[in-house]
Amino acid sequence: AQELLTKMSEKCFKKCISKPGTSLDNSEQKCIAMCMDRYMDAWNLVSRTYSSRIQ
């Protein structure tokens, strides 16, 4: 899962942290959590779509 975590961190950092401040504020933390859930939704969906195609 290392690669998943790395890519998720990069993609969600880019989406949620437009100006990095002195700490992660509340709205940034919420955005990261949501982004993470959506990234895994996408990952599962991609995985199912690809699996059913190559079978």
Binding site: C12, K15, R38, A42, W43, V46, S47
Partner: peptide, 16 residues
């Protein structure tokens, strides 16, 4: 999967 996911995430997800 990782490659597809990156590509399609960038194309389809604007604001999570």
């Amino acid at each position: 999967i990782h490659e597809f996911n990156e590509l399609c995430w960038d194309k389809c997800v604007d604001k999570p």
